[in-house]
């Protein structure tokens, strides 16, 4: 599904290297987790994959189902099935959450040359998904993320994901700032989207999210590289011993 090879990335503005040869191969239907200390480049990886400006790819490649992601505009990547749940969802004053969702769904359908969803079908779908995530109808009317609590913002990202039905979902620290109940809701939302084909890359700091969203493979990232990959037990090891041992091992 997603194939990342030897990805090198630095900042456009200054000569600062962030990713130093990332390799990742995600098979369709799998859940991969990336863990790693703060500042290791996890968010940068998710931004570069989704096309944020300000980063320069100096070497390597990224392909989604064989399509060269790095050659596509952000909206084309989205239409091709890539979705990023942001670590820090952005506020858009004055734009209703529902309007935003509708516009996103329509835009993707248009880019893919599919017929537009009718207003009625759209409304039904949103209501159903919002209910699963315990999102009140009031939150659908409010401007995108404005005045939302941390938990509301994260649930809203999952709502967008559920509505857009992407093939490849990247979740960047979706668990941070969530209490236990909210984490359960979000995990349920994610798990409901697992269908054997949809692929997930879950970036997290803590093992606890991975209790709810069971990964197939866990990667440890440090200083812009994947330094170790393994099964779910790797996450438990990190939880117990921290990153220090792992860092020494590979140093």
């Amino acid at each position: 599904m997603l194939e990342i090879k030897n990805l090198h990335v630095q900042l456009e503005e200054e000569d600062k290297k962030i990713l130093k040869g990332v390799n990742l191969s995600l098979e369709a239907g799998k859940v991969h987790a990336i863990m790693g200390p703060n500042g290791s480049g996890k968010s940068t990886l998710s931004y570069v994959l989704s096309g944020k400006k300000g980063y320069e790819v100096t070497a390597g490649s990224a392909h989604l189902e064989g399509n060269d992601l790095l050659a596509m505009a952000p909206e084309e990547r989205a239409a091709a099935g890539l979705f990023l749940a942001f670590q820090y969802p952005v506020e858009i004053p004055g734009v209703g959450n529902m309007t935003f969702l509708r516009s996103a769904v329509n835009s993707q359908q248009k880019l893919r040359g599919e017929p537009e969803m009718t207003a009625g079908d759209f409304l039904k779908a949103v209501r159903a998904q919002a209910k699963n995530l315990k999102i009140e109808s009031d939150m659908l009317k409010r401007p995108v993320n404005v005045g939302f609590s941390g938990g509301e913002k994260k649930r809203n990202e999952i709502l967008q994901m559920a509505m857009l039905q992407p093939k490849m979902c990247i979740l960047d620290e979706t668990d941070s700032g969530l209490d236990v109940d909210a984490m359960k809701l979000v995990s349920q939302g994610v798990n409901a989207l697992r269908d054997g084909n949809r692929t997930f890359l879950v970036i997290t700091h803590y093992q606890r999210l991975l209790d709810h969203i069971k990964p197939d493979i866990v990667h440890i990232m440090a200083a812009g590289k994947i330094i170790k990959s393994g099964g779910p037990e790797l996450a438990l090891e990190v939880e117990k011993n921290g990153y220090a041992n792992l860092l020494e091992e590979t140093a």
Partner: peptide, 27 residues
């Protein structure tokens, strides 16, 4: 830029993203 990128990452073209943000500003 973050607002525009957020919109685009959800599938909206650049000009649609600007129009959406500006329409929000004028609401």
């Amino acid at each position: 830029d973050d607002q525009l990128f957020y919109c685009r990452s959800r599938g909206m073209g650049e000009e649609d993203a600007v129009a959406l943000v500006v329409n929000g500003f004028c609401k």
